[in-house]
Design a protein around this nucleic acid. Sequence first.
RNA 1: GCCGGGGUGGGGUAGUGGCAUCCUUGGGGACUGUGGAUCCCUUGACCCGGGUUCAAUUCCCGGUCCCGGCCCCA
Length: 419
Amino acid sequence: MIQRPRGTRDFGPAEMAKRRKVELAMREACSRFGFGEVVTPTFEHSELFTLRSGQSIVDEMYVFKDKGDREMALRPEITASVIRFYVNEMSTHPKPLKLYYVGNCFRYENPQSGRYREFFQIGAELIGSKNPETDAEVIALAVNCIRSAGLENFVVRVGHIGVLKSLVREQIEDEKAAADVLRMIDKEDWDALGDMFDARVLPRKLFDRITAIADIKGGIEELNNLEDSEATRHLRELFDVLRLYGIEDCQVDLGIVRGLDYYTGMVFEIDAPKLGAEKQVLGGGSYALSELFGGEPVFSTGFAIGIDRVALAIDAERKIEPKPALDAYVIPTKDDMRKYAFGMVARLRSQGLRADVDLMRRTMSKNLKYASSLGARFAVIVGKEEMAKRSVTLRDMTSGKQEVVLADNIASEICKRMG
RNA sequence: GCCGGGGUGGGGUAGUGGCAUCCUUGGGGACUGUGGAUCCCUUGACCCGGGUUCAAUUCCCGGUCCCGGCCCCA
């Protein structure tokens, strides 16, 4: 037997119904915010991703040579492709450009709960601005996506890497040392950072300031403990706009230093605490990528949501209600009624109802059982007596009540009872 | 990449150094149109590869996959 590759999944009809529901809710949120969908290739020149990200992403990429000996990679994320698309073909569009995408991504990682080698993201990029209101718009959309999907318990943390980045760059001249310091800050590895400061005889005072800033987590008022700077002003304005958008419960967290290489300003994350180890359902921020791909310098803000994790988190909160798969199941009472049954199911389908009919030549009682297992809302029983009256028996599968209705009215009678 | 815990029909299980249990599901049949029932029949499993042994599903080793944790991320 051929096994499914490690870290991949098959999704059955019931699970897909749930996933599509979650995905559709988030698509609609993007649409409400004026974002338009784009689709980019599943694989790209691997250079696109190596330019953007550090070695850590490269190590977990699916890379291969195509038949023309070009080095390709399955996309580990979609932001880079969207920005490439923008630089290639959309750079003269009026700003801001609002784009969203949905797609599968691939990373060769060790699978565990909420982590897969093929996973699904929905994300958005707002290209052409770095104003506080831009960042607020993107965060508002992110929160709207998560809420619309039906997730209730989540934590939004917003930071600004400008605070720590400029401080470190200012105080430490050696670029590589500065990068190392930032990396350790990102990992919150204070011991290693302290050791490094000792080894390089860097000022202890700077170390204390760094840890103090990275420790700032809480409401917007936390910023009052910092001296005024471009970054703090940006965050204050951003939070003001968020409040006007009705989003009040965001936390400030200056310890977020995600994706140091290209994130330039605001960064944010959303966690679903119920998820445990893999609780981060979203990551995003503002960045300047287009230059890397040969375009004019343009600021963008974006995010990516892990659809799998959102679905898992909603499931952990409560069951996602899949809608019944069928509106009506047509049962002939006897073999000579089958032709009548096919006509009936065709009529139902043409009226837009989800209808099915017995194809297994089952008996009446087994058909009722089967209809029940399908989750059919109604059984339509067609027999000799009904046919004589140009009618059918309509059985409500939840209540068990049934009545005889005219065949011509069957679809409308069903719709009437479905509410 | 590292560290735990696991793999018995499609799903859920019992058990064992020699015959693998039960439930459920699937398929068929009986019951003259409502018995979403009941009864009968039937398909179907010890993750893979080595080793120990007269004999391995069971014990040992390796792999693989699943579950969870670290790292990182979605």
